[in-house]
Simulated scan of single mutants.
Amino acid sequence: MGYSGNPQTGLTDPGAISVAVVAFLVLSLYNAIELDVILLTVFQRRRGLYFWSFVASTNGIVPHSIGFFLKNILSSRQFGLYITFVAVGWVPMVTGQSLVLYSRLHLLFWDTFYLKLVLGLIIFNAIALHIPIIILMYGANSSPSNAFVQPYTVYEKVQVTVFFLQELIISSIYIKACFSFFDTQDSMYGDSVRKMRRHLLLVNILVVILDVPILCLEYTDVYDLQTAYKAFVYSVKLKMEFQILNKLVEMTRAREDVDPFNNSSAIRMRDESSQR
């Protein structure tokens, strides 16, 4: 997530990076505010893991972005202040997003054993990655050069990679569950189901693709741009999450209009949508 005296590669223009950083941070804050408005106006029943993980991830974007404004744009020398903002925002922003994916997975995937494994993975990674990197982040920012910098740069790459793989695993399970679920509905509902499946597949693939530049920027050591882009990507992924949920709810309602003997899968999706 960056530290004092971030190195930049020789292939980048510092001025252009600063402009891009500002743009991504501003867009991230705008998206977060918009998402909060949507949460307050769309969800009628504010409860459940999906809703609260959505709230946590959305509102984690704000302090995370403010922290990097203080560090990179306002050149704050109070490293404890901006690191605290970054850390307070980073944890719910990243792990909250994984919990959003996990809670949405319940709509189409009901193998309790694998669901527990996914939840265990999220909890383990949250402890194993968030706590050490926050400690290293405070240490690395305490001075331009100290013993914390090298471990931080290594562990930073580890956590970015692991969190990427974590979301990739959850999204892959969801995509597979989508195909399994919609295959059983295809013969009954025809084109509408095929269009729904195609839309959900494309949106989920796009969500995964958005994460790839984060890895590229991380491994090319363009830290400032990577951290700003990350906040923007997480805000975009949350906005796309509403599209996915809306499509699932739309499909459920369409099924209920056609088939009065809807099965448990429709009931599960209706229960989730009733939070809105």
Results as ranks from 00 to 15, higher is better:
Arg45Trp: 00
Arg270Ser: 07
Leu119Phe: 12
Leu11Trp: 14
Leu101Thr: 04
Cys178His: 11
Asp191Leu: 05
Arg77Gln: 04
Ser265Gly: 12
Gly48Leu: 11
Glu34Lys: 08
Leu215Trp: 00
Phe68Gly: 01
Asp111Gly: 00
Ala32Cys: 06
Tyr3Pro: 02
Gln44Ser: 12
Gln243Ile: 13
Arg194Leu: 08
Gln44Val: 10
Tyr30Ser: 09
Ile83Asp: 09
Phe181Pro: 02
Leu168His: 08
Thr153Lys: 15
Ser76Met: 05
Phe181Val: 10
Met269Leu: 06
Val193Ser: 04
Ser4His: 10
Ile173Lys: 09
Phe51Leu: 04
Glu34Arg: 10
Phe24Asn: 09
Lys230Met: 13
Thr41Leu: 15
Tyr82Val: 08
Tyr3Asn: 04
Leu129Cys: 15
Val160Gln: 07
Leu202Thr: 01
Ser187Asp: 15
Thr252Ile: 01
Asn6Leu: 04
Val149Glu: 14
Glu241Asn: 13
Gln243Ser: 09
Ile61Thr: 14
Val22Pro: 03
Met269Ile: 14
Ser53Pro: 08
Ser145Pro: 07
Ile205Val: 08
Ile17Asp: 02
Glu156Arg: 12
Glu256Thr: 04
Met251Glu: 13
Arg45Ile: 01
Ala20Leu: 04
Ala23Gly: 07
Ser235Leu: 00
Leu108Arg: 00
Gly60Asn: 13
Met188Thr: 07
Thr112Gly: 13
Gly190Cys: 13
Asn204Arg: 06
Asn204Glu: 07
Gly67Phe: 09
Gln150Pro: 11
Phe164Tyr: 13
Phe164Leu: 03
Ser142Met: 02
Phe113Thr: 14
Gly89Ser: 15
Ser53Thr: 01
Val258Tyr: 11
Val212Arg: 02
Ser142Glu: 07
Val203Cys: 02
Leu215Tyr: 00
Asp271Glu: 10
Val158Ile: 15
Gln97Asn: 12
Asn263Ser: 03
Val88Asn: 14
Phe182Gly: 13
Asp191Trp: 00
Gly48Asp: 13
Leu115Ala: 03
Ile122Asn: 05
Leu206Trp: 05
Arg255Glu: 13
Phe43Asp: 06
Met251Cys: 13
Ala23Glu: 14
His199Arg: 14
Phe113Met: 11
Pro14Lys: 01
Ser76Ile: 07
Phe179Cys: 06
Met269Asp: 06
Ser274Met: 09
Gly15Ser: 00
Gln166Cys: 00
Ile122Val: 12
Ala56Val: 02
Asn262Val: 09
Phe43Leu: 05
Lys176Tyr: 03
Met240Val: 08
Val62Gln: 03
Ile209Glu: 10
Met93Cys: 14
Ala126Ile: 09
Ser143Tyr: 04
Thr58Gln: 07
Lys195Asp: 15
Asp36Met: 08
His199Asp: 14
Thr252Glu: 05
Gly120Val: 00
Leu35Asn: 02
Met251Ala: 10
Asp257Cys: 14
Phe54Gly: 03
Ile123Glu: 07
Ala147Cys: 10
Leu40Asp: 15
Asn262Lys: 10
Asp186Met: 00
Tyr50Lys: 00
Leu101Cys: 09
Ile175Ser: 01
Ala128Gln: 11
Leu206Phe: 05
Phe182Pro: 03
Thr41Gln: 15
